[in-house]
Design a protein around this nucleic acid. Structure first.
Length: 269
DNA sequence: ATATGCACCTGTGTGC
DNA sequence: TGCACACAGGTGCATA
């Protein structure tokens, strides 16, 4: 479910918990991709949320004293901020209760997500997260460096979190449509002009998707339960057999490195 | 080093 | 209706 635009939308929808103090923690099921630490409740209780930042698809809750709660939503994770008695729904795994009566529930049917407490330097998963494509750490020159000498398909390079943090399968496909590039093109074969189009497309697609609150394809919601609207703007993702919105040619599906790629054979070269 | 295949887990849609 | 199978927003490890 969640790529950069969805995670950023969740982050923004969680900002109202800044300042809230954690009064109780319930771990219903610790079996996530990494098991939730048995000491999580003890270590969280009494702490307050001082800030929430994002690194690629990861969220970092600042708990002060150099301690952070690291969260990743995997393929199907959601964080829901509510108040009152809501019971335990299927796939509710962890719930933080705040002193003011609100509570934050981590729900994840596939359990590919992560909730982990520690210091920044302890989070080895963050070492594989490259620069954020929406900041000025990312530039045309940086994109050119990333692609230099790389034989893999440009789509898989865009999805490599070590190069750029936050692009997943939906947005890689949409970015390449916007840039007019086939997903299977070898990264090192892109011309200067194509790299410039690609750079602009990364920025344009991700910014628009954040503005629209991400893509709600089946069940993605932000922390307040609101859906995103970028799914209404998808040009190629999951549209195999349907007409290209620009030229009417039938959208094709191929597989690159085990992930579905969608493209218009006429608009994308 | 680099690129791919597969496993992890549950739900959903499709075809027989 | 039941069943088998393919596929799904991600990542990390094993393998060439």
């Amino acid at each position: 479910m969640p790529e950069l635009p969805e995670v950023e939308t969740v982050r923004r929808s969680l900002l109202p918990i800044i300042g809230a103090r954690i009064a109780a923690v319930h771990v219903f099921d610790a079996r996530l991709r990494r098991p939730v630490g048995a000491d999580l409740p003890t270590r969280l209780c009494g702490r307050a949320i001082h800030g929430i930042t994002r690194r690629g698809k990861y969220l970092l809750f600042d708990l002060a004293d150099e301690t952070y709660l690291l969260a990743h939503l995997g393929m199907s994770g959601a964080l829901l901020l509510r108040r009152g008695d809501v019971g335990r729904a299927p796939h509710d795994h962890v719930r933080l209760h705040f002193a003011d009566g609100r509570h934050l529930t981590y729900n994840d049917p596939r359990r590919f997500g992560i909730l982990r407490l520690g210091r920044l330097a302890e989070f080895d998963e963050l070492r594989h997260v490259g620069p954020d494509p929406l900041t000025n750490e990312f530039s045309l020159a940086a994109l050119a460096t990333l692609t230099r000498g790389r034989k893999k398909p440009i789509k898989n390079l865009l999805m490599d979190q070590q190069g750029l943090g936050g692009i997943g399968n939906i947005y890689a496909n949409e970015i390449l449509f916007c840039a007019g590039l086939r997903p299977g093109r070898q990264a090192r074969r892109l011309t200067r002009a194509e790299l410039a189009r690609l750079f602009a497309a990364v920025r344009a697609v991700l910014r628009t998707a954040v503005d629209l609150g991400g893509s709600s394809i089946s069940d993605y919601r932000d922390a307040a339960g609101r859906p995103g609207y970028f799914q209404l703007q998808l040009n190629v993702y999951d549209r195999a057999g349907a007409p290209c919105p620009r030229c009417g040619t039938t959208i094709k599906r191929v597989v690159h490195a085990g992930r579905s790629s969608f493209y218009c054979p006429r608009c994308q070269r």
